[in-house]
Nucleic acid binder design. Structure first.
Lengths: 341, 341
DNA sequence: CGTTTTTCCGTAAACGTTTACGACAACATA
DNA sequence: TATGTTGTCGTAAACGTTTACGGAAAAACG
């Protein structure tokens, strides 16, 4: 079934060295023999054994992505990641690289699994998501000198790695601007409870914009919960029951918004009618919800492709001998106005 | 950084053969030296190089999962898969196996990528999802004798591989039973347009139950669309505009239901009030939707674990020398009554 | 004490690649 | 002709494991 380089050599009556050189496009092989090798490879359905190749080369030709379930809810996951992975994989495949997805073990926030990937050299580099403000994974990877890139920023690890992020700060501010322009002054913010960096950035933009408009930031209008439906559902009533309730709520993502809207409805408050709602990271869910939720849709698939490019360019083994390269990018987030605000 | 078996041997002044045997728990090594090897391995932070190991062993110690984005919608993916993958990965990790996730290329339904995984021997086995009624992937894998397991049934490939599925047929029937018991006789079914097998099974149960109740199956009440929000949104109006409109709709999954409900609201029809709604494969979305949608929640994480077990047991290299084993399982789907019907 | 068995360990080959090195022929140059 | 250059290819080592084989020492047995 699996034909090796030896089979090709025997079949063509030449040495395995020549076969390998022909296959790898090296210069010191006759054009004629190269063609014969290529033909034979196609005929015998040859494809190189990855283990042998990576053992010899010292690189695995694959990139790992650390995927995690929702913190606080093992039951369901984040559809967010799938289109991102699609882009990532597509770009990596163009360079003949494979994508390994490693699930994080709940609890230790992936440290253990990350070590395993690094130490067994299962991948040449790793991509991290849901970066935290202080991220021990980043500290670890930089300390051992393992190549990586992140979806999202962090304060850890200096500026020595490629990262791609969305401008959540601006999105938070834009959301506030829009609501203020529509007459709101009591604006709540509901964000994830963990120190996920995008929640932090969102809140920073929210605060800044409020102050810019001369509106005092009221801690009673800021709540945090798990970044899923349950989180939004549990936390929203508290905000609504404050002394001076909000007339608008900004949710950090679609799942929290869904749960929050459920809570609102149960309180007899109609989202989009009695109260304005904006979502920072939306999905098709927002568009098809009733009322359709105003939000910011991230271009996930292009982000995946771009981060793959950036990562590859940062790895000497894959990149050409180019000079310094862009190492961090922050993409704008564009508001899509719908019916909920 | 990365210490090899040679480092251990040199450090302990013994041969690499002994080190390997000690590490692999073979019998012919002194208990004392074994302990010394283990200690040294821990101290030198040794972990075996996967490439070397799999080259020698002829197995990669990793399993591939083919992940695909929504057909007809590249933009977002199926949260369905994440908890399933969590379970799969958890179980595989217990046996020291890694999980490789390979994204399917849109268009050729994964044939090309699947070939690549098989031919380069990147994995020892592969897990398929979203099985079709006739599935060329299954035919291919059986024809080349590559081990695999499927989430979902298919008519392809005989009975020679492990598969785990949910009883969509019974769920479809249960949904009909419940609606009929509540007085409905005009019941619509909205399912995916592709020949995804779970859509087929669902419809079979739906039909069977209707006939059992002496209700004629009306083709006008059956519609198919892309298995996402857009699909449900586009297809639902057609069903509602039939000569004798339904008083209840069964959606095949949560995304289609969301889109369908949007369409209903736009037509001035209130889901859960003017019309009953049931979802076959629900997610937390259903619970937090307003009205909360009655549906069947699949135990995805346990399913992932179980399928990993079944797959491992079917691979001679991993399994002990056990006899014949359960090769196909169909799990029941339990209805969770909520507010929409 | 001689023989057989057991226990433990070292040697070396093998897995499928890649690549440094050298060999040989053909050809060009002086 | 002698020398150098170029083009092409084979040889063999190396990557880090695992494992069949054999051997030496120790233990068991007569």
């Amino acid at each position: 079934m699996a034909s090796s380089i030896h089979d090709l050599a025997r079949h063509l009556n030449i040495s395995i060295g020549t076969v390998s050189r022909a296959l790898n496009g090296r210069a010191d092989v006759n054009a004629d023999t190269r063609q014969r090798v290529l033909d034979a490879a196609a005929k015998l359905n040859y494809s190189p054994n990855q283990s042998g190749r990576s053992l010899r080369r010292g690189s695995t030709h694959s990139i790992a992505f650390m995927l995690q379930p929702h913190p606080g809810d093992q039951q369901y996951g984040e559809p967010f990641f799938i289109p991102f992975l699609t882009g990532l994989q597509a770009k990596l495949a163009e360079s003949g690289l494979d994508l390994i997805v490693v699930m994080g073990a709940p609890g230790d926030y992936q440290q253990e699994r990350l070590r395993r990937v690094v130490e067994t050299r299962r991948a040449d580099a790793v991509v991290l998501a849901w970066t935290r403000r202080e991220d021990e994974r980043i500290d670890y990877l930089t300390s051992v000198g393992f190549p990586f890139a992140t979806l999202g920023r962090s304060r850890s690890g200096g500026k020595s790695y490629p990262s791609l992020d969305l401008d959540f700060e601006k999105a938070g501010a834009d959301a506030v601007d829009r609501l203020v322009a529509r007459g709101h002054r009591r604006i709540a913010a509901i964000r994830p409870s963990l120190d996920l960096n995008f929640g932090y950035l969102f809140l920073a933009g929210y605060r800044k914009a409020l102050r810019r408009h001369g509106i005092e930031v009221d801690p009673e209008l800021i709540a945090s919960g798990f970044i899923n439906e349950a989180g939004g559902y549990e936390v929203t009533p508290g905000v609504m029951n404050s002394k001076d309730p909000p007339t608008a709520i900004i949710f950090n993502n679609d799942a929290m918004a869904l749960g929050g809207c459920k809570a609102l409805v149960e309180m007899g408050i109609k989202p989009g009618h009695d109260i304005a709602v904006i979502v920072i990271v939306d999905t098709p869910l927002c568009r098809y919800f009733s009322p359709a939720l105003t939000g910011f849709r991230p271009p996930l698939e292009p982000m995946g492709r771009r981060l793959a490019e950036m990562l590859l360019a940062s790895i000497p083994a894959y990149a050409g001998e180019e000079g310094p390269r862009t190492i961090r990018e922050v993409w704008p987030l564009e508001l899509i106005a719908r019916d909920s605000d």
